[in-house]
Every structure is written in C-alpha cells, then in structure tokens.
C-alpha cells in the first residue's frame, strides 16, 4: 500500500448507520412532540413515529457491527465507559435509546394487539404474575408521555451524537467544527419527520379521524423549519471553514470543486434541502399568506419527504467520505 492513496476505512455501512440513527431519533422525537403538542389530533403521527423509531436504528446498528473487524465482540463496547470517546458515550446512548424506542413502540401498538400486553397494576402484583392485566387507556397514555419525555432528550442526544462522532476529530478538518453536530442533529430531526410524512402520505386517511390537514400542517411546517435551520447552519459552516485554518479552508475544496462537489451541491443542497423547502413552502404559502387552509397533496408531501431522506443520506455520505480525505496541512506526500 502506498501511504499516498486515500483509504476509506469508513464506508457506506457507516453512512447508513449514521443516517438510520438520525431517522430513528427524528421519528421518535417528532412522535413525542406530536404527543405533547397535539394529543389526539396528532395521534396518527405519534403512532407512525413510534412504529418507525426502533427499526432504522436496529438495521443501522446491524451494519455498524457488521463493519467491525470483530462483529461478535461488539460487547467490548459495553464493558467500559470511555468518557473521552464519543463512540463510547454514543454506544451507551444508543443502547438506552433502542430500549426506550422499543418500549415506546410497544406502548403505541394499536388496540387489539396492545391488549395482549400484561402489566402489573398494583405493588402486590409484582410478585404475582397471574394478576397482571392489560393496561388501561389512561395508564397507556401516561406511559407514552413519560417515555416520550425521557426519550426526547435521548433522541436529541442520538441525533447530535452522529455529528459529534465526526466533529470531535481534529485530524479531519472538514469535520472538526461544532456545526457538524448541529447540522446532523437538525438533519436527523428532519429525516425523522420526513419518514413519518412519507409513511403518512402512503397511508389512507384514518376513517372518521380526518386530522389530515392538521397533521400535514404540523409535519410540513416542522420540516420546513428544520430545513431552514439546516441552511442557517450550512452558511456559517462555509464561512467558518473558509476563514479558519489553512487546513479547514482547504478541506472545503473537497465540496467546492473537488470530488464531492456534485453530491453535495446537487444532492444535499438542491435535492435534499432547497427542493423540499420549495415544495413545502408552496404548500404552506396559502396558509401563511391568505390564512386559509390548503389541500395538502399526498404526492407532493411524499415527494418532498423522500427528497429529504435522500438528501439526509447524501449529507452523511459526503461528510463521511470527504472528511476522510481532509487532512492537516501541509500535507507531506507519502
């Protein structure tokens, strides 16, 4: 091997993992938010979010473990807590988050299945399994809100972690700014919202509960807000990188005229941020301008959600790959 050639030790599996962790965190968060903000109105959103949350992450964790040279010894991660290692902290966070998201998932089971659950209702039940019964409506509601409340900050942590994992690495100038964590967090939330939106737009409206417009309004405006936030991070990110050290300024070349220019500008910015924002803006426009409700189109909603997801994936792809090419300068040719 020549030291000169760039080796991408982190590959698509890692990209996938960072992406899925973000989607899960975002889905969980939006579900929790919907639960608190909308109650019954956003029930469907809450449920979709809860149904989605555990799975992308599980898949992602699978691919992460698969990427290890020793997949079957991943448990070493959980024999220690390394305070200085984002990956160690992140692993514990993810462990906690997965547990919570599975509990949350179960709590959001729709009626017939949920009734199969058996839980203790009194202290004395703890030792008497026979007395366990299906949870009542109120109990479930409380449990959902409690888990959502605990889970939301953990979800934010997970969303942030995917960015901190990269951002905490001084050796890679492209990554080494707090804005990567922010960007990844908002992107995570946005992809989470988009996954819910996408599924919602694929589903028929629930009979008798036509909260469709409200749901859409909630999701689309949330997503639009997140996209705006992302853009508000991308701009200072560029300014900062360009004005920072020689190494970080040079690292921008990777996405400005370098090998990752196209995926970044076309994929992440245009397809992943601007186009969905325009679609969503178009949908939101009448609401804002004329204070009247519009008919949300499932097609446009689904499309913008899909684009957000594609953009979110590409964002991670560009950062994971380009970041590995970025390097301290002067670069000693090897």
């Amino acid at each position: 091997m020549d030291h000169n050639t760039i080796h991408f030790h982190w590959n698509l599996l890692i990209v996938f993992y960072l992406f899925t962790a973000g989607v899960s965190a975002g889905a969980f968060f939006v579900s929790g938010l919907a639960t608190y903000l909308g109650g019954a109105r956003y029930k469907r959103i809450s449920r979709i979010g809860a149904m989605v949350a555990p799975w992308p992450l599980t898949l992602g964790l699978g691919s992460l473990v698969f990427d290890l040279t020793k997949p079957f010894q991943f448990w070493w991660l959980f024999l220690t807590l390394q305070y200085t290692s984002p990956m160690s902290i992140g692993s514990w966070l993810l462990l906690g988050f997965s547990l919570l998201s599975f509990v949350y998932f179960v709590l959001w089971f729709p009626r017939p299945w949920r009734d199969l659950l058996r839980v203790p209702h009194r202290w004395s039940d703890l030792t008497n399994f026979g007395a366990w019964r299906a949870p009542g409506r109120k109990m479930i509601g409380t449990a959902r809100r409690v888990v959502a409340a605990i889970g939301a900050p953990v979800a934010i942590g997970v969303g942030m972690y995917t960015g901190v994992l990269l951002g905490a690495i001084p050796a890679r100038p492209l990554w080494n700014t707090p804005m990567v964590a922010q960007l990844f967090l908002f992107s995570a939330m946005s992809t989470g919202v988009a996954s819910v939106l996408l599924i919602a737009s694929l589903m028929r409206p629930e009979a008798g509960h036509d909260h469709l417009h409200e749901e859409r309004h909630f999701l689309v405006s949330l997503d639009a807000m997140l996209i705006v936030l992302e853009i508000l991070i991308v701009i200072p990110f560029f300014l900062h990188q360009a004005l920072n050290t020689w190494s970080s300024a040079e690292s921008l070349n990777l996405i400005m005229g370098g090998p990752f220019t196209l995926p970044f500008w076309l994929g992440v910015i245009l397809l992943g941020l601007l186009t969905p924002l325009i679609i969503e803006g178009f949908e939101l426009f009448p609401v804002v301008w004329q204070e009247q409700a519009v008919k949300y189109s499932r097609l446009w909603g689904g499309l913008s959600a899909a684009l957000v997801l594609v953009g979110g994936f590409l964002l991670r792809y560009v950062f994971v790959y380009a970041g590995q090419m970025s390097h301290f300068l002067p670069l000693y040719v090897r």
């Binding site: 990269l166 890679r172 970041g323």
Partner: peptide, 9 residues
C-alpha cells in the same frame, strides 16, 4: 473490535 474510529482520529 475494529471500529476504526482511532484511524479517523
């Protein structure tokens, strides 16, 4: 375990 995080760092 071969997570390669150190290689990034």
């Amino acid at each position: 375990i071969g997570c390669k995080y150190c290689m990034m760092a």
